[in-house]
Design a protein around this nucleic acid. Structure first.
Lengths: 94, 94
DNA sequence: AAAATTTGGTTTATTTTATAAACTACTTTA
DNA sequence: TAAAGTAGTTTATAAAATAAACCAAATTTT
């Protein structure tokens, strides 16, 4: 009846992050922070969880002299998101 | 960019409960428990939260001699669910 | 050129939430 | 009438989200 909702994606901030990353080649920490309105601490923690799950790749580089954390969604992330959306549909089909 | 997800509905079990109630005139505790697979304790707690939020009405009656907790969604519950679905779309539009 | 401020984060602590375990009250069955 | 089952509630615990505090380097101000 109801499909399970991947708890890693069923979180407002992590879902927003994945939603952003799915539409772009990559996005950096500051951009994601601006788009989501999240605090830096919260974003750092949630990105880490997504990285540990293998849903995003995080590359630490520099933009000029300033550190720049670049994030990309992985294939596993794409798959998980697609499944999450399908699962959601079992709850919201009207 | 991203609409806020009502935290009361952004919970797997509470969402399942609302999803059930939105499709029927009423449903009792045992039925909801069967459909969701939730433990009685968890369901009791989550139904209580939905009731306190004014999203469901809970009527304690008897079926024969056995207690029977009948649940119905309220108008506020319907509205909240509709808004939640709209908000979700800001995350999952592809 | 120090001092203060900003930037780009991470780590740690706190609060909130979800969930399970334990319990209550009553009913049915052996 | 004792044991087991039903229908839940309450309480305790585990997990999660979030904020606050912190750090290092860069930039700006005085």
């Amino acid at each position: 009846m109801f499909r399970e909702l991947n708890p890693l994606l069923h979180s407002e901030l992590r879902l927003a992050v994945i939603s952003i990353l799915i539409g772009v080649e990559s996005a950096d920490f500051v951009f994601i922070r601006q788009q989501t309105g999240a605090t830096a601490g919260n974003l750092s923690v949630q990105l880490d969880k997504l990285a540990k799950a293998g849903y995003v790749e995080i590359e630490k580089t520099f933009r000029g002299k300033m550190p720049c954390t670049v994030c990309r969604i992985t294939d596993a992330g794409r798959d998980a998101f697609a499944e999450y959306v399908t699962a959601l549909q079992s709850y919201i089909r009207q």
